[in-house]
Amino acid sequence: MSHRRTLTLADVSVGDALPELVIDMMATVVVAGAIATRDFMPVHHDRDYANAQGSPEIFMNILSDTAYCSRFVTDWAGPEAIVRSLKIRLGGPAYANTTLTYTGSVTTVDALDSGEADVEVTFQAVNEYGQHVSGTMVINLPAG
């Protein structure tokens, strides 16, 4: 099975846009993420419970948020990119039955003596309600 090459220093420049990641936030997606991250809070799987708490729908848990942030960046950078840090600011909830769209771009590129590169991506994700999350991720790319 062949896999996509991982980006290196020569492949990235400040201002490069990442491919969009669009998540069809079905209830199944919300529940699958909550259980895979071992988060059994009812607001992430039980709509009646969420309604009683004042939410129109179940909504994605924060561990799923960070999972999608890493997928958004490593889908672009390739399988050997190493995540160094992630900083997110949370906006409105990612309710079920919405569409969540991640966009982002390269904001810094640091060439290391080893030939590796540390690259910062600044991103956001929005849905029908507005901004859901924004933040930065730093990844390390292998030497070319």
């Binding site: 099975m1 895979a36 799923s64 999608y68 890493s70 997928r71 490593t74 889908d75």
Partner: peptide, 28 residues
């Protein structure tokens, strides 16, 4: 669950030959 197809997480053959030198857990 997250439809993350990174082979470093699940494909031993790829992971062994990668800079990780073996399967790694997703960082997040």
């Amino acid at each position: 669950a997250f439809e993350d197809s990174n082979p470093a997480y699940v494909d031993p053959e790829f992971a062994e030959s990668s800079r990780f030198a073996g399967i790694v857990a997703p960082p997040l």
